[in-house]
Design a protein around this nucleic acid. Sequence first.
DNA 1: CGCGCGATTGATTCGGCTCAATAACTGTGG
DNA 2: CCACAGTTATTGAGCCGAATCAATCGCGCG
Lengths: 235, 235
Amino acid sequence: MKKKPEMPHCETCGSRDKSVFCGIASGEIKDIDASKGCNFYNKGQVIFHEGNRISGIYCINKGKIKIFQIGSEGKEQIIRFAKEGDIIGYRALLSEEPLSASAATLEESTLCFIPKSQIFKILQDNPNFNFKMLKLLSHELGEAARVITDLAQKPVRERLAESLLLLKDTFELDDDKNIQIKLSREELANIIGTATESVIRLLSEFKKDKLIDVDGRNIKLLNIPGLTRTANIFD
Amino acid sequence: MKKKPEMPHCETCGSRDKSVFCGIASGEIKDIDASKGCNFYNKGQVIFHEGNRISGIYCINKGKIKIFQIGSEGKEQIIRFAKEGDIIGYRALLSEEPLSASAATLEESTLCFIPKSQIFKILQDNPNFNFKMLKLLSHELGEAARVITDLAQKPVRERLAESLLLLKDTFELDDDKNIQIKLSREELANIIGTATESVIRLLSEFKKDKLIDVDGRNIKLLNIPGLTRTANIFD
DNA sequence: CGCGCGATTGATTCGGCTCAATAACTGTGG
DNA sequence: CCACAGTTATTGAGCCGAATCAATCGCGCG
């Protein structure tokens, strides 16, 4: 399943300046380059598996990823998304715990793997990178708290509207206002913790209300203020 | 509301060796001691407020704390708990974002406040402390992910059983198997995202099933394996 | 003793899930 | 290029978990 693409180089990686590696000196970048591996993944491939140990982090050179857990009834719960320039697997690496979630590609993707030893070396030598990681983790923790409150308190309708806005912020809209990610109805349901049928019904209501337009897996955001109101967001 | 207690000293703080400060050299401990402040809080007092900025972290010398958000309908959502030896406020401090949650005491508590400058100094000088923070944050993030999946997928009955077990793990049982924390029915509801009436009904069912015993706010865990089963936990 | 908050119980309602049937779509091989 | 098989999406019906609403109770405290 894995093909060997042109090995991307960190030095020329287009997403480096948007990533946690943006402040790293060129010498260290060369070290990373020398120690890393790189792989191509087809759509839907699993990158790592909840419960396993991990021996490094993955840096997304290209592509889109979902991070998810499997609940006690075997149902997928999407925890977060990652895209070009993002890293995944760092939580388990840093806590030295088993992976709390799995990761799979949502489209064809190229990922670099940076081994643990290299990451820890940079953490030690580079206060700037270290601090970036602290910032990243604490930011994520804040996001998680907001998700918790929403899941606990908001009805499905509001959560779906909010998710669409979240997807917009993560993957952006194209010139035609389409969210730049194609998810199945089931995946949408697995973000907000509901049944696929509920997502389908609500999407068609949103469409009727002219908040969005739907064409297959393509979702166009027609009325963002309206969606924000529907999501019951006021800050 | 705030009284001035005996100022506790980090050097003799009983919970230091259980905390993130356990590996810190005695010279640095003296620095913390010199820069910190300390306050007594009555039960129910708010320590900090969601949305505000924070200029340091609080270290719990004594007492029990809830960290919570207010949802869009004004309802409290308890995100996590903290107790002796734990620190709070570090998420917002490290991410340099506004506080994502508020904190309030669940009983009389004594908290030390360590200013930002001191924390950042230790972070820079002490790789060990730095690494402890990375570990703490990434551990928390893993916990948060599990909470998200549970909230999204488990029915209220399972969530309540799971919460009781979580409270046991956090605050431990006394010799009589009572959970060492007294929460109102409403607070229990605000952990699991349900209505107080549902908590009440389920607690009395659990009691009928001999899983627990209830006496006012005192909850005794009679059958932990049974509760685990009720919570649908198998790992 | 009475006020007021928290706890309890019952009745009712409703959001959202499940189940079932059908339709649309995707990729595959002939 | 079309037929077929296997997904994925849609729609409808019915049910159920849990929320809401409404009393009542209990008790701690001034």
